[in-house]
């Protein structure tokens, strides 16, 4: 049995027929070949799979592809503007906010939502926002720095606009 879904992923309209039990994360990875979204657990605990669904950070392993019918989805692949990195991506590079890179897409998408809701977060607020994302490599130190860097840069950009 398959169900039709129509949605937008990184600005591109998509129509597919999927098994109703297919999780959104596997739809992205295996049907659309967008492998930047990762799977790190089976209990919705790690955050490696976070994407934006209609602007909200969602663990895509907790949602069925059919539930995303009609939604607009942004994944890590859709974040940069052409060759120009998003300030959060730049922050992770500038502040060494990643090592193995496996948690990174989820971290970046989570940070995106944080900075949209709170453009000037303090350290505690950043740490709280990252509470659903495991990183085993960085000890979070440089992830925090990366988000602080991005916040500063995004504020400047707004100011210049």
């Amino acid at each position: 049995m398959v169900s039709p879904i129509h949605l937008k992923v990184n600005g591109q309209p998509r129509s597919d027929e999927v098994e109703p039990r297919l999780l959104l994360v596997y739809y992205l990875r295996e049907v659309l070949n967008l492998t930047g979204t990762h799977v790190g657990c089976d209990t919705s605990s790690c955050g490696a799979c976070v994407v934006l669904v209609d602007g909200k950070a969602v663990k895509s392993c907790t949602m069925l592809a059919v539930q995303a019918d009609g939604s607009e989805i942004t994944t890590i692949e859709g974040l940069a503007n052409g060759s120009e990195l998003h300030p959060i991506q730049e922050g992770f590079k500038e502040q060494h906010g990643l090592q193995c890179g496996f948690c990174t897409p989820g971290m970046i998408m989570t940070a995106l939502q944080l900075l949209e809701r709170n453009p000037d977060p303090n350290e505690a607020e950043i740490r709280e926002a990252l509470d659903g994302n495991y990183c085993r490599c960085t000890g979070y130190h440089n992830v925090v720095k990366a988000i602080q860097y991005a916040a500063k840069k995004m504020k400047k950009e707004v100011f210049h606009d």
Binding site: G36, I76, E77, L85, F102, I108
Partner: peptide
């Protein structure tokens, strides 16, 4: 700054499970 970062922050890392 790390040269490998570009692929990881763009979702272009290639881990074993990404291989089809």
């Amino acid at each position: 700054k790390r040269v490998e970062d570009k692929r990881f922050i763009s979702g272009k890392g290639r881990y074993t499970d990404d291989i089809v």
